[in-house]
């Protein structure tokens, strides 16, 4: 189980009240496969985190985990062990911006 923290607007859209949700993912899960599993469980999140066709992360969305910015890592790389083990959450963050 991977713990995922969604930004407030996406929690509302997904209809979840908890700040963290748990996603089933294999031991070699990557950012791509984790987001894929998230979209499978919550289809209403399709295209809100990444482009469904290109897989490209939306410009105002960032990925953080284990005190690191993973936004520019290869999305096919295996996630940090602590994330896969459920010790650390995977944070999907809306970039700080006004408006």
């Amino acid at each position: 189980m991977i713990r995922v923290v969604l930004p407030a607007h996406l929690r509302t859209l997904a209809g979840v009240a908890e700040s963290e949700i748990c996603i089933d993912a294999p031991g070699d899960a990557s950012i791509d496969s984790l987001i894929g599993a998230l979209e499978l469980r919550f289809p209403q999140l399709l295209d809100t985190i990444r482009d469904r066709t290109t897989g490209r992360r939306r410009p105002f969305v960032r990925y953080f985990a284990c005190s690191r910015d993973l936004s520019h890592d290869d999305a096919r790389d295996t996630l940090p062990h602590a994330v896969i083990a459920g010790d650390e959450p995977f944070l999907i963050v809306g970039a700080m911006a006004g408006g």
Binding site: L13, D47, R58, F60, G94, A97
Partner: peptide, 19 residues
């Protein structure tokens, strides 16, 4: 700007909505 386009539809005059 953060999360792109979402389309909602209501079938009960706006009382409830679905993506």
């Amino acid at each position: 700007a953060w999360f792109g386009q979402v389309v909602h539809r209501s079938d009960d005059g706006g009382a409830s909505w679905n993506v």
